[in-house]
Amino acid sequence: MRQQLFEQQHRQAWEDLQGWLEERPTLNPEDVPPAYRQLCHHLAVARERHYSPALVERLQQLALRLHQRIYGERGEGLLGALRFLWQDLPRQVRGEWRLVAVSGLLFFGTWIGAFLLVRADPNLVHLMLSPEEAARYVQMYDPKTPVAGAMGATRDVMMFGWYILNNVGIDFQIFASGLLAGIGPLFFLPFNGLHGGAVMAHLTNQGLTATFYGFISGHSSFELIGGVLSGAGGLRMGLSLMHPGRRSRVAALREGARKGARLLFGAVVLTFVAACFEGFWSGNALVPWKAKVAVGLAFWTLLALWLLLAGRRGR
């Protein structure tokens, strides 16, 4: 068949498809897949018959755009995200409990270790904190220093923004650095753990329990578990790189990154919630600190229950 005839016969079909792509539909949606298959056929024919390069290229590009459109990933939307949080994430955390446990141990283990050490010997704090830092923390939680919440709502919003920028960014960095053979989390988690534990013990030694525990208890569960999860996500990625199993390293890595990113997503949500509490609740001076601690403990319990139990029932 001559090219001209070929073009004449099928031009309408191509233009219809083009129109569908450009949102001026002359085609019913159910007619698109057959028309697309037809187009693929035309493309193959045009290549086989060596029609002019411009025609082949035109068909090729049309097919490519349709391919992208037709095989586009359908998002699960809001519902998917919620189901993920409620079912899939706790399931995955339980499924990857070894990694989560390692990550948690690196973080909380060093935290508790540093806390106990500094409690036992207050001077040890200088191993982990410089004197200025230590003094700054003491000053920050001095009951005489006004805490954030007492400074009005605008400050709350500012702190909220800062917490999101800083804390979620840290989560992202812990995760991404997991690609370096998992070294990132292996470094960041104990580092943050030691630091946190030392600060906590130091402030306890200084007798600042009310302000300090009052401030951190509300959001601590979300933030710390978020850190542990992003660490686990990073470890997952690093582990896939080091031990690809029976897959190629790249394929294993791809899979590992997908799984890790899911943990990270959970971590980000948790950290976001933490920032909300940290900005708007933790610094609130109107609530007595014991109530805050009680609320904080309740959140710890709820989160633990969520991770342990949610999504256990099958579909």
């Binding site: 605008t154 400050r155 500012m158 909220f160």
Partner: peptide, 12 residues
Amino acid sequence: PLGLGLWFILFF
């Protein structure tokens, strides 16, 4: 400060 907070979020 309110603006600063919003700016932090934007920056993030």
